Simulated scan of single mutants.
Amino acid sequence: MTHPLKVTRNGAVLEIILDRPKANAIDAATSRAMGEVFREFRDDDSLRVAIISAAGEKFFCPGWDLKAANEGEDADSDYGVGGWGGFIELPNLNKPVICAVNGLCFGGGFEVMIGADIVLAADHATFALPEINIGVVPNIAVVSLMRRVPWAVGMEFMLTGRRMSAEEARHHGLVNEVLPLADLMSRARELAGLLADGPPLAFAAIKDIARRVETMPEQQALEFARALHSTQRCFESEDLKEGTQAFTEKRKPVWTGR
């Protein structure tokens, strides 16, 4: 069987391309493979940024492979170390993940997209959570989507299963940029290169803090954030000294992650 992922390393950037013709649907085995790739990305200090996208021009990912479901795969199967899609529930993944949506992004594919830190979309991309049509709860989206959009927007989207254009997704803050398909990956790589040159400890602290304090009252969140190990590590790092010195000397910092 052909491997469902095409993984390429470009310096500090890891590109993961979902490639399961003809629609890039994800079954449990593919999700487990994604989890292993993202775990290796998390644990490799020489890798700074990941890009997740898919092969072809029509489909990013329609979600769960219903053919596998019809052949006996349960909805609560073992999806691997990072949960569905490989990284949404991967513990301590404190590195930036960019999602480049190249086409139809439905169901579990939408949940993969919403788990990323920065989202770029081709201008023909469409988004939907059609699980309602088969009587299934989009459990990841119920949690994540409702923290990102107004209640009425998220509920209408999930309860009707309707499609959302790339421009509407950008309007609601689910997508950062909408681009022609021909420019999608070049922009993703440009952005990944920018992040790869950034301070890894600061990125780790930002993701760690944001994830942990999301539901806390503001004052509690501020106090909690100051006490976090990732925050203290950033403030006590050689990178902070390098950053301030480079600013004084009017040069580009050399980040080491220490």
Rank of each mutant, 00 (worst) to 15 (best):
T2V: 10
T2Q: 13
T2P: 15
V13T: 10
L14Q: 04
I17P: 01
I17N: 04
R20N: 11
K22T: 12
N24L: 03
T30G: 15
A33N: 08
R39Q: 14
D44L: 01
L47R: 14
L47S: 11
A50G: 11
I51V: 14
K58M: 02
K58V: 07
F59S: 12
C61D: 08
G63D: 13
D65H: 07
K67L: 10
A68I: 02
A69N: 10
N70V: 02
E71N: 11
D76C: 13
S77V: 04
W84G: 01
K95P: 09
V97G: 00
N102G: 12
N102P: 06
G103R: 10
L104C: 00
D117F: 01
A122D: 13
D123Q: 10
L129W: 00
E131N: 15
N133P: 00
A141K: 08
V143S: 12
S144R: 15
P150H: 11
M155A: 12
E156K: 15
M158L: 14
G161I: 05
R162N: 05
A166H: 08
E167A: 15
R170L: 04
H172I: 00
G173S: 02
L181M: 03
M185C: 03
G193P: 04
L194P: 01
L195S: 04
F203M: 09
F203Q: 13
A204F: 10
A204S: 14
A205R: 09
K207F: 07
D208M: 00
I209R: 01
R211T: 10
E214M: 07
T215L: 13
E218W: 06
A221R: 01
A221M: 03
R233W: 01
C234Y: 07
S237G: 08
S237Q: 06
E242W: 08
G243E: 06
G243D: 07
G243W: 09
T244D: 00
Q245R: 15
K250I: 04
P253T: 06
R258K: 09
R258Q: 07
